[in-house]
Design a protein around this nucleic acid. Structure first.
Lengths: 208, 208
DNA sequence: GCATAGTTCAAACGGACGTTTGAATGAGAG
DNA sequence: CTCTCATTCAAACGTCCGTTTGAACTATGC
């Protein structure tokens, strides 16, 4: 293992994304986080400044690499001609769902955290996440509208909102699944199943 | 108007579903609710017993009629032979989204409230909603699996989870829509657009 | 050794929370 | 009018919240 020691700052971020993903921002107290992280409660304000700043730092650390990978893949797709809708959908979905499969590691916890923050009940929290992800989302939306010239732009935007929602849904369920509604068979196929579901809906389910 | 007077109990329920839908259960204090409802804070515990009991009562009042209509329509469909997937999807979706359109009335507030409670960050709250809606959901899932014999039951269950998620998404956005991602044109077409989206995904997006 | 900057700590801050109390108020029945 | 029971009320309960304080500790450079 190349984790020689874990700094207080890192432990706080790790526990924060675990607990915020479990019970939400409002439902998680700083005391619960600091106790689990074996840190003093004052450490949060020392390292981050406030509870919300801790959340902001956790969001940036969790969503940053995912969105970076999305940028990388979109750059690559746009570098070689007009991408197909399926390619765009896959390039957006997969970086977010690959996390879900890393159950032994931090991945599934990160996925749940992202999924819950993205659709938190509080508009304040949602905006905090949107600030992190909106630029790359907008790029994908534009690309999808170009890739689906026969559908009205508003219709594609409707589908795009659905894609964001379903991705967050399956991310937030990374560590818990209601019985009887498991993913089809092999959980590693989740991304493929979701892409297939969305591609069908985009290709044939959008009225102009 | 046939609202001669509004009892304290009714005012509390009305404000509760408005505020819980705005900021979530944890993010809304009883004091905020009682002030807005022009009621004393002790009225909540007098009429309901606790904050959670108030939420439970609000969920029952909001979701009850929606699920009743779903039962009615499923009974009717099953009374006349094998229903098509589209009929089932429509019968499930429309009762939940009709609320969204009643912007002048309480409908949109109820829709947002339901959508937020169904996917609240706290498992406790989600279970509280599930207890209300799981029976009818299970009936629809079974009916859908029968209506899609060529798809694996787990695949249909996957699609069903997506349907629940997207419905809750659009319900929760009943009173707020991110700019640039409006519903296609006529908002009254939301149900039709969502049904078309889901039908396409169910018919062609589920791998067996 | 000593000074310095970075980090951790126990303790307390004021405020907001859900809940409870017991008296005051109201309407309806006898 | 009087009794009764449901409802409302101001006030306080104890607890937990995010945040702040100032001292104690740790390590590094001189």
């Amino acid at each position: 293992m190349d984790t020689p020691v874990e700094s207080t700052r890192e432990r706080l971020l790790n526990i924060a994304e675990q607990r915020f993903g479990e019970a939400g921002y409002e439902g998680t107290s700083l005391r619960a986080i600091t106790v689990a992280a074996a840190a003093n409660i004052a450490a949060v304000n020392y390292h981050f400044g406030s509870k919300e700043a801790l959340l902001r730092a956790a969001v940036a650390r969790a969503a940053g690499p995912v969105n970076a990978e999305r940028r990388r893949r979109l750059d690559q797709l746009e570098g070689s001609g007009q991408p197909a809708p399926e390619q765009l959908i896959r390039a957006f979905i997969e970086p977010g769902l690959d996390l879900v499969l890393r159950r032994g590691e931090r991945g599934a916890i990160v996925a749940r955290f992202i999924g819950r923050v993205a659709f938190d009940p509080s508009p304040r929290i949602r905006e905090l996440y949107a600030a992190e992800s909106e630029p790359i989302e907008k790029r994908y939306l534009t690309a999808l509208q170009r890739a689906l010239p026969h559908a009205a732009p508003t219709a594609v935007a409707f589908g795009f909102v659905n894609m964001l929602g379903l991705l967050a849904l399956h991310q937030s369920q990374a560590l818990s699944r209601a019985p009887g509604t498991e993913d089809p068979d092999d959980p590693s196929k989740l991304a493929e199943n979701l892409v297939a579901f969305l591609v069908a809906a985009f290709d044939r389910g959008l009225r102009s």
